[in-house]
């Protein structure tokens, strides 16, 4: 491990240790925050009991579904929009403002239309995540070097072969950025939707535990979600690093 990595680990450990100490000595009221060790043990008990399994499956399944739909549909939409320059120019202002407006505010509207089913969550999740994938796809296709088109013709490649063998790999780093964002947005939208209004799911569990003053359960659930989100981000980040290291190292 590098020196910087070591320092970072020490800093994080010190922060957690300080929180632990503050909770143990009563400096922080246990009705506000419980000690990190207690969160961990509460989570362990909760996971071992199996009572959380259904909600974990539901929430992570929803996040997976939302992310997959956003990536596939966003990529297809991106390719289509890239092929229609006029539509694209008309859409550009929408793309530029999309993440500046709180699209999430439509979640209650979707509930009014579809009721408290899975549909509103999936729709709000996809609406949040898909645009990042569309923008990333457009960006990636824009950055495919023009010379690759000429190389394709020198090798007498057809349209599909050009797309699969040259354009797709050339745009891949940008597409991966889109995938990372889609995962992140999918996560945020699904949890937020569950938290605010939903019949089940981990977000709902947290809200319930908060309402019941059940801090052990609440902090266990929060810890679980934060750990899962951090793990997913770490995996995506390391994949990204591996691609980047061999593809762009030293390239101007």
């Amino acid at each position: 491990m590098t020196r910087v990595g070591l320092i970072r680990l020490v800093v994080i450990a010190a922060l957690i240790g300080a929180l632990e100490l503050a909770c143990r000595t009563g400096l922080i009221d246990h009705r506000i925050i419980i000690a990190p060790s207690e969160m961990a043990s509460a989570l362990w008990t909760l996971l071992a009991s199996g009572s959380l399994d259904a909600d974990i499956a539901r929430t992570l399944g929803l996040i997976g579904l939302v992310t997959a739909l956003s990536i596939v549909l966003g990529f297809a939409a991106g390719v289509a929009i890239h092929a229609l320059p006029r539509l694209r120019e008309a859409l550009d202002p929408f793309f530029a403002t999309y993440y500046a407006v709180p699209v999430f505010i439509f979640y209650p509207v979707l509930i009014a239309i579809f009721g408290l089913t899975l549909m509103p969550i999936v729709l709000i999740g996809v609406s949040t995540a898909i645009v990042a994938m569309i923008i990333a796809t457009l960006n990636g296709l824009d950055r495919v070097p023009r010379v690759l088109g000429k190389v394709a013709r020198v090798h007498r490649l057809g349209r599909i072969a050009t797309a699969l063998q040259l354009q797709l790999p050339a745009a891949a780093p940008y597409l991966f950025t889109g995938i990372k964002l889609a995962v992140s947005y999918g996560f945020i939208a699904v949890i937020a939707a569950e938290f605010i209004l939903s019949p089940a799911g981990l977000g709902r569990d947290i809200a319930d535990a908060y309402a019941d003053f059940n801090n052990r359960r609440m902090y266990a659930l929060i810890l679980f979600l934060l750990v899962v989100a951090t793990l997913v981000n770490a995996v995506l980040h390391s994949l990204d690093m591996r691609f980047a290291a061999r593809r762009s190292g030293g390239r101007a």
Partner: peptide, 26 residues
């Protein structure tokens, strides 16, 4: 900066809504 950046980046991509009850308790 070298120590802090990755911490900030991973905090940035967390679903902060999960922390709202904590904020409310505080």
């Amino acid at each position: 900066g070298a120590v802090g950046e990755p911490i900030l980046v991973s905090l940035y991509s967390l679903p902060k809504i999960t922390l709202y009850p904590v904020v409310l308790l505080i």
